[in-house]
Write a protein that binds this DNA or RNA. Structure first.
Length: 468
RNA sequence: GCCCUCAUCGUCUAGUGGUCUAGGACACCGGCCUUUCACGCCGGCGGCUGGGGUUCGAAUCCCCAUGAGGGCGCCA
């Protein structure tokens, strides 16, 4: 059997971390079994579905590295992959009619005054049309059969539901669109989906869908429901807890690899927590996924992000950082013209931060002609005798010819020792003069990376200001 | 209310009847390193939801209770 797994978002908003995790597991499962990963857009809610969110969802999936084999943009032999287009093709109508003809479904005619109350049920299309013309809204409802519905969930095992707990299911809305549960069944069948791996919020939809499979005489796929992601207070993760959209984490400065790493970690017990899920496809196993709701831990995500930032090749970090800058800031795009310099800067700055936003703050003073001092920095520059200390430093740096970190450290320490000031204060002063900030990478490394010329210029700038 | 699922440190997890005085990671606390802030290293705190069984033996199996999550839409 060919494994075919789908991710089927409805385009009514951004891609949520929970959705991204489901998609990741779908993808992993498909690839592990040499199967296909399919993207289907469930836009049967015509009021809330938009093309913009469809596009942003696709963009976010791609950012996560989750590319699909079949989908609305790339096509495939089971298309179209947008349900609205499948409605136009009459796909759902055909099967609704089939159920109607078999007497397994009926037209529900609602009262004119109270559109929630069913006035009459009939299987006659003629009769239904008569009411339709009089302005009654009409849906097609599936008659819940008697008995029990049983299925095996890959994670949870045997699942048994008494059908009497379910109402009859609306399968075609009064506007002619199929409802979720109906469209899903038709599409999963027609698209030859072998495994339905989705969020646990769909667990009780499954028996309803299975009743439909059975009524239509179709073989049902295998099901697996994965737990939901909660916020720290164990309520569903929402904006109150911080960001929830993939886009939020991207603009916050989380790197794609780290994000996917964390998502995979949530529920997947691994020995080494820092890893690339795309390189561990072989060891992925749906059965080993945790089955309890998991709490999203922003702190751990950031820690993982920091680990990735430090361990990836600098060139790669620069690529990630550049595209992040492009998306979030207008400046900074010229920072990497001198790539050799840029790499050195990134190398010393990445040691200190856990996200790209923080990295930007560290890196920026190195790239501007003259850093603008922060409030704290200004206070230090206003202290007495600053001029003489800076002059000493300037002289020492000027004299230094063999430019390396060791030598920089040696001369700076020598000057510090000879001055009537604590070395701590002296170092802070220099740091602020050179970079305009009280928190920076190591002082000697910074001076070394800035280079002799740049360092001298910057100190001179400050001296000029003081003498004014 | 009815139906379903789940239950190991604060969080994510390892653990599938004896190797568990329960292991790891994040967070937290303390120390080292140190020019700032971090990183890193070392150490600490901290848990099997409760009660009944089964068994020579239970975190592991069964039952009940409790708690948490989900569902019960012409939303998906």
């Amino acid at each position: 059997m060919t494994v075919r797994v789908r991710f089927a978002p409805s385009p009514t908003g951004y891609l949520h971390v929970g959705g991204a995790r489901t998609a990741l597991f779908d993808w992993l499962f498909a690839k592990k079994n040499g199967g296909k990963f399919i993207l289907r857009i469930e836009d049967t809610d015509i009021q809330r579905s938009t093309r913009e969110s469809e596009e942003s969802i696709m963009q976010d999936l791609k950012w996560c590295g989750l590319y699909w084999d079949e989908g609305p943009d790339v096509g495939g032999i089971f298309g179209p992959y947008r349900q609205s287009e499948r409605v136009s093709a009459g796909i759902y109508e055909e099967y609704a009619n089939q159920l109607l003809e078999a007497g397994m479904a009926y037209y529900a005619i609602y009262e004119l005054e109270d559109t929630k109350r069913i006035l009459k049920r009939t299987t006659s299309e003629k009769e239904a049309n008569k009411y339709r013309q009089k302005g009654h809204s009409i849906t097609v409802n599936f008659k819940t059969p008697n008995g029990k519905t049983v299925f095996d969930d890959i994670a949870k095992g045997k699942m048994e539901f008494d059908n009497s707990t379910f109402e009859d299911l609306v399968i075609v809305k009064s506007n002619g669109y199929p409802t979720y549960n109906f469209a899903v069944v038709v599409d999963d069948h027609l698209m030859k989906i072998s495994h339905v791996v989705r969020g646990e919020d769909h667990l009780t939809n499954t028996p309803k869908q299975i009743m439909l499979y059975e009524a239509l005489g179709w073989e049902k796929p295998k099901f697996m429901h994965i737990p939901l992601i909660l916020g720290p207070d164990k309520t569903p993760l929402s904006k109150r807890h911080g960001g929830t959209s993939v886009d939020y984490f991207r603009s916050y400065g989380i790197i794609d690899k780290a994000f996917v790493n964390y998502l995979a970690l949530l529920g997947w017990g691994v020995e080494n927590e820092i890893f690339d899920p795309f390189k561990k496809i072989e060891s992925f196993d749906l059965h080993r996924l945790s089955s309890k709701p998991v709490i999203f831990d922003y702190a751990k995500l950031e820690w993982i992000n920091g680990q990735h930032m430090r361990s990836m090749p600098v060139e790669e970090l620069i690529e990630k950082f550049k595209s992040w800058l492009e998306g979030n800031y207008s400046k900074g795009l010229g920072w990497f013209e001198n790539i050799e310099y840029a790499e050195k800067v990134m190398e010393i700055c990445r040691q200190k931060v856990n996200n790209l936003k923080a990295l930007k703050d560290f890196v920026e003073p190195f790239f501007v002609e003259r850093p603008i001092p922060t409030q704290d920095a200004k206070k230090i520059l206003d202290l007495p005798y600053v001029q003489s200390y800076l002059l000493s430093a300037l002289g020492a740096i000027k004299m230094l010819n063999n430019w390396n970190v060791k030598n920089v450290e040696r001369v700076i320490r020598t000057v510090a020792a000879s001055e009537n000031i604590s070395k701590k204060k002296f170092f802070q002063l220099l740091r602020v003069a050179l970079l305009g900030q009280t928190v920076t990478p190591g002082l000697f490394e910074s001076i070394y990376v800035l280079g002799k010329e740049r360092s001298l210029t910057r100190i001179q700038y400050v001296l000029n200001d003081i003498s004014k």
